[in-house]
Design a protein around this nucleic acid. Structure first.
Lengths: 387, 387
DNA sequence: CCCCCTTAGTAAAGGGGGTCTACTAACAAA
DNA sequence: TTTGTTAGTAGACCCCCTTTACTAAGGGGG
């Protein structure tokens, strides 16, 4: 046998990193991947014939038939009859994802005062919506309350529940351990494992801003090549998606941009104990108080000034990562005007053309249910490999 | 088995992204991955017994034996005799990577005046070194010169050459197309494809700062969970590695941090045509002229002031990505003092504890051959899946 | 010294996974 | 009709890893 070293080897990116335990790949993993490929296509493109699936995935029609029949057996996919329209050859049978066959329970814990939840269909549509006042509960009490809340949601589901997704503030590790969420008094709380235990269902937990980014990627039309969403509410958070997957950070704290100092001196005291954080000028309360009772002109100037600081903070990030989009999520009446425009101006001023030429800076396309949608994506991608 | 060739197989992460064409995974890809796993382990951990490889990779001893014998047949791996030391059971036979069986040709095009090249063994040791004055050549001329230069290096190799790696300034796409490298007058030059054609060898090209990051990851001890290297030379560049893989950016311009504006007003004119870029204060010429003829104290102050600007620019990036390390690469007498210390101080001041607590900010561990090492990693990872 | 135990490495059978080839089904157009 | 085209499936085959069982080669205790 002659040497054959001149070939390019498939390194499945990330897997060959020496950091995470080196992980073997088996044929069945390939199978799972290809299965996800099919679901992914059906999810985003809608009903498709097997032959078209084969063309789209580069798999053979035989393999696709096999995968599809397995998915049909699982109840995730169904035949939808012959494709309408006249063309040559045997008519194609469309198969589609049964988006109503399962449901997802999603919870948004962003708000300090209440938890918001929903039962959603697989395509992200909200079927049942519910909220519950937290009444100052924290720590284990809050976990108990959350468990009851979720049980209620599960009970109101009209289809089998695929899993539970939760968006929480604070630092959350990939296993759903809440490392720290000070306002909830959660420190190293194994939220996902705990709830999965109690509920007997798969539970996925992640940072709220991070999954907002996921939601914009999956349900919005954000460019997965690299974009960032800045969420403006009681606080300021961010989520970064690069190459279709969300940045995590070495201690799971990626996106914590609200506490970057943007005012070297004269900044207000921030909840985090330091002065001049971005949050002290960009969070909704800050913007409201900065514009309260001002003339339109003065209020616009105040918003522009916040935008200037935002732009200054974002310019280096956009340059370092060569992002293609920045999304703003939050009250449009505050964000989608002088603030956004000024931020973009500043970013253009402070970055090189190669970086800012293709950049778009716009409002997020999803509304206040972003985090719920993100929680749904968490479940979709965790359980079905779809995103 | 002859040339099974330039089959460029998919990368696993990002495969599920709906952006790039959905790519199937086959059992043989799993095989290739596992093969890389073995090489990866031998590369980083040194000689290992088959049984230990099985434990490390979670594959069975049978599979490992099979993979190893294939690697031995390819000449990439060899048996090294019985493992020394007494213990129970049948003595283990160590197998190791034949790092001297093949060689790599690496070229560093960072410098405006000369190209630097080397023949390296698979473990990154430089066997032959060579440089060539560019004499103002640009464009196609420069490509011709480069081809001749590389041919010379190949001729001086003492072992079969695995491939050619090139670090170029400018924007380079994943296929080795130099999108733009203004100083070289290269615009959309398919450098990798062109040279591969002429040389009959696999050629990999990437941005110099980006592969410097790769080098620190592979040969240094940078934390692949997330770090960034800032290269300070005639210009200022950066490379970001997250989860073991380098950031690319949606237009392959990730790391272009040298042209972020850091001086809103009063900045010097930059080569890029704008004012107050980081490069105008941090590049080596700028630092030298800022410190020339000054007392130690004044010079230190000047360096600290550059450090302050660097820290200010990096703080948002570190926060957004939750990086664990920042490396500085360049002349230590300029960088490794007040500049670095001040930058770190500023970063600590301007980021929240959860982000800066675990952060280290240090000089890169590789010397002026970083880019050459990075070029070697390019080949190693492209041809063998090792990094 | 012998027996037992442990560890290393291999051979053979088996099963999952995808492709290739060949076939049927079902239509449009000539 | 006949011809050509497209959709979908069946069977044979190859790749790849695992399970099971076996051999090889040591240590240690009685």
């Amino acid at each position: 046998m002659t040497t054959d070293v001149t070939r390019n080897v498939a390194t499945m990116r990330g897997l060959s990193s020496r950091l995470r335990p080196l992980t073997k790949v088996l044929p069945e993993h390939a199978r799972a991947h290809n299965r996800s490929l099919v679901l992914q296509h059906l999810f985003h493109e809608g009903p498709t014939s097997r032959a078209d699936l084969a063309r789209a995935t580069q798999l053979t029609r035989v393999t696709i038939s096999d995968l599809v029949s397995a998915l049909i057996a699982e109840g995730l996919v169904e035949e939808l009859g012959v494709r309408p329209g006249q063309r040559v050859g045997k008519p194609a049978i469309l198969v589609g994802m049964r988006t109503s066959a399962y449901q997802i329970v999603a919870v948004d814990l962003t708000d300090d005062m209440e938890m918001r939840g929903a039962v959603m269909s697989l395509n992200g549509a909200i079927v049942v919506r519910s909220q519950l006042n937290i009444e100052g509960r924290t720590g284990a009490d809050l976990v108990d309350l959350l468990a009851r809340f979720i049980r209620g949601l599960i009970a109101s589901a009209t289809q089998p529940v695929l899993g539970v997704g939760i968006g929480s503030p604070g630092v959350v590790d990939p296993e759903g351990l809440v490392v720290e969420a000070p306002n909830r008094r959660w420190f190293d709380v194994p939220l996902a494992a705990d709830l999965a235990d109690r509920l007997g269902l798969p539970v996925h937990v992640a940072n709220d801003a991070n999954i907002a980014a996921l939601a914009e990627f999956t349900f919005g039309n954000a460019d997965g090549d690299g974009f960032m969403i800045v969420t403006v509410g009681q606080g300021v958070g961010a989520g970064v998606v690069v190459d279709g997957s969300p940045m995590r950070g070495y201690r799971n704290a990626a996106g914590e941009i609200g506490h970057v100092t943007v005012l070297a001196e004269g900044g207000l005291r921030c909840a985090c104990g330091r002065d001049g954080c971005l949050e002290t000028v960009l969070a909704v309360p800050a913007l409201r108080s900065a514009t309260a009772g001002l003339s339109t002109q003065d209020s616009d100037a105040a918003l522009a000034s916040a935008g200037r600081l935002l732009g200054t903070a974002l310019a280096p990030v956009i340059s370092a990562l060569n992002l293609s989009e920045v999304l703003l999520s939050g009250p449009a009446e505050l964000l989608d005007g002088p603030l956004r425009e000024t931020a973009l101006e500043v970013i253009r001023d402070r970055t090189m053309p190669a970086v800012n030429a293709g950049l778009t800076f716009r409002m997020a396309s999803l509304d206040e249910d972003v985090v719920l949608s993100g929680a749904a994506v968490l479940v979709l991608s965790g359980q079905l490999g779809v995103s």
